[in-house]
Nucleic acid binder design. Structure first.
Lengths: 227, 227
DNA sequence: GAGCGATTCAAACGAACGTTTGAACGATAT
DNA sequence: ATATCGTTCAAACGTTCGTTTGAATCGCTC
């Protein structure tokens, strides 16, 4: 038996994906040129077109590589929760945690590129380019439907339309938190090292989101409290 | 007295700003070329460089035109609330509404370009380009400090670090809601016409954000509720 | 109506973009 | 060793980018 697979079979491919993730995160898709990308990866300029076909196809590959396993993990966790519940509806916060934990786990993971990716992902929900948004929407659709169903079972008395909006808000909070870390620091005060602590961040986010999701309408209206 | 100012003195400037707002929103900054911009505005290709100096300066002008009055309006509303309160701390939701109302008012405003701008603004918080982020941060800083102070007075018992995070979350929810409307529609179900109703959106957001801001730590932990 | 500053215009600038090409290379199987 | 297949390489392709140029045009004052 000769020494096979000592040199990784897809080393160039992988290196391109890693560098693309990093550069897309820091400069965006358009501002990242093939020349700076291939130079940073230490591969030939033509390598991207050879391995992926085009720059757009590379963008898609960058997302698929991580998003497919991420969604699978989320759904697996939801499956586990529902199996344990024996047909009973789940606690809302348990559903929330199942959703956010996968993302937050990657935030703390400074070694692998997961942290870079999840921040890239957070920003991409507001990406202007249509094909990218369509891709993200398509990759997320099945997961979203499952979580929507879980929330509807957990909160049968919340009007559906209100639930959809609150899911929208929750998703927005998560996305922004992922994307904006280390970028805009509009509210000064949060300690940088804190931002990488996935466990603490999950607690903060779960508390905030659960309260928002379960909010009673008209509560704390707070107008005309003065004097 | 001859007829003066019948032809607006800065018509070209204004038309460029309006079209830029629109195109930046739909295609992003990089993907919007000077040629498509000037063609859509019906002005000469060189007009942007003549009136603004460069494309980057145009981007800055687009933000300054609307963001300065927006922040002034927010601060004025906060001033009014604090004057009415006679030195007493404000109700948290009143502060929240003072902040979000200015943005939401523009969402409903389909006639003027305000709606376009506020969506552009929402997306720009996660913009990769450093100079743009720096500009936004700089334009927002004084407003943010004022609102931070108001929240600290309203919630003296909430640890400051927790408050900063919750402000971060609230800001994220608002940004995402502004930006993602009409873009990614991950959670199906929200009626399109509803998304333009500023009044209803303010109610939904204020309810959600207030609950999140006032959430008790460890509430609704929701783990191990099953069986 | 001549003169003038502000604005518009068509044309061109060099640089950078994504992609393609065809030859060279390396390992494997015949 | 020779042929083969997947991969890498330097070079060039045509296009589009943001910006600049210098002449033409406009509205105004003297």
């Amino acid at each position: 038996m000769t020494l096979r697979a000592v040199r990784p079979p897809h080393e160039t491919r992988t290196r391109i994906l890693d560098v693309a993730e990093e550069l897309f995160m820091h400069h965006g898709f358009e501002a990242t040129s093939m020349r700076m990308l291939t130079a940073a990866a230490g591969v030939n300029l033509a390598a991207v077109n050879y391995h992926f076909g085009s720059k757009d196809a590379l963008v898609e590959a960058v997302f698929r590589r991580r998003l497919d396993p991420m969604n699978a993990e989320r759904l697996a966790e939801l499956d586990r929760l529902e199996a344990d519940a024996n047909g009973k509806p789940l606690a809302p916060q348990a559903i929330i945690r199942a959703f956010i934990r996968t993302s937050l786990k990657m935030v703390g993971d400074t070694r692998a590129g997961g942290r870079t990716f999840v921040r890239l992902l957070g920003r991409t929900y507001t990406e202007p380019a249509k094909p990218i948004r369509a891709l993200i929407g398509q990759l997320y659709a099945p997961t979203m439907e499952r979580f929507k169903a879980a929330f509807m079972r957990a909160l049968p008395h919340l009007p559906r339309e209100e639930l959809f909006w609150r899911m929208h808000f929750m998703f927005g909070t998560l996305s922004y938190t992922l994307a904006a870390t280390d970028t805009v620091q509009l509210i000064a005060g949060t300690k940088p090292e804190d931002r990488h602590d996935a466990r603490a961040l999950e607690e903060r986010l779960a508390t905030f989101l659960t309260a928002g999701l379960l909010a009673a309408r008209g509560e704390h209206t707070g107008v005309k409290k003065a004097a």
